[in-house]
Design a protein around this nucleic acid. Structure first.
Lengths: 151, 151
DNA sequence: GTCGAAAATATGAAAAATCATATAAATCGA
DNA sequence: TCGATTTATATGATTTTTCATATTTTCGAC
């Protein structure tokens, strides 16, 4: 074992548990993503676009949990690399529609498969009851957080 | 509501749910931390040290979910600012023991109180069953992730 | 229609984070 | 006890990320 102190605060703090779980659960797969030649934010963009091609920059940024100006640059690089294309929206010239190229789609679909396999492995390492609960609990938390602050 | 598409992959993907929950749940409190004049990594250091004063750099880095070289610099800055002191370990001169100053401790304890209040509010926004489950589920996940890969 | 506000994206400059590696101390065997 | 390894921390160079703000387009009230 590494360090077992019965820390009074941190080790039981919800925000710590969330951050640490996310971090640790993602590490393996993120390594895999990098081994495939992508940075994590790029993988996120691909995953979003497989679900819904032609998203605009702002929405990609929200879903990928990052800032708009960063997303602009990431899309630039992915464009330069031939994974996506940028196109103007017909109805609103401010918007940039990001679309997968054939190459981008292949890579994206392949990684989504890998991600699903990895997720299955993760969940199967949990007891059935925990595996059944975890997504529901997190979804509920997200729902609650979306609602405007009652205060 | 913002964007409700029934995304096939991302919105139900465990690593997304974890990252998004962590991100969203933390935003409010992190804003509070910054309003108090600290960056998030600095708050994490303070929280660790309240639990266990005199930690070494490496352990602080692990617990705060960041790299050692980054932690070195963060501790430097906190030292310069008078929140912590750096002292050599008596038995092992490689180690740097980081300790709270009086000022650092005051700030840390005050923020821990704030964090607890915030956590209580978060949990109370969940249904009782979810609130009761969430920490347990996350702890289980962390436990599982700590174990060496069975593959 | 026109004007002011809001929305979407882009960009330069600054700050933060990472990476590779250096240094120094402890540990472990032969 | 010497040398090879490992552990702990530090640091220079580079890459990422953020921040503030500019630009362009749309929207809404009048």
């Amino acid at each position: 074992m590494t360090d077992t102190q019965d820390d009074t605060f941190v080790s039981g703090y919800l925000l710590y548990l969330l951050a640490a779980s996310s971090e640790q659960a993602s590490t393996q797969f993120h390594d895999h993503v990098r081994a495939r030649g992508l940075r994590v934010p790029e993988w996120r963009v691909l995953a979003c676009l497989v679900d819904n091609d032609g998203m605009m920059i702002t929405r990609l940024a929200r879903l990928s949990l990052m800032e708009q100006s960063r997303m602009t640059r990431i899309v630039d690089q992915m464009d330069a690399r031939g994974l996506v294309t940028r196109g103007a929206d017909a109805n609103d010239k401010r918007r940039v529609r990001v679309r997968l190229t054939a190459e981008g789609r292949d890579l994206a679909e392949s990684l989504v498969k890998d991600a699903r396999r990895h997720e299955t492995r993760l969940l199967s390492a949990l007891a059935d009851t925990d595996a059944a609960r975890i997504k529901g609990v997190l979804r509920t938390l997200l729902d609650v957080l979306d609602k405007p602050d009652p205060a």
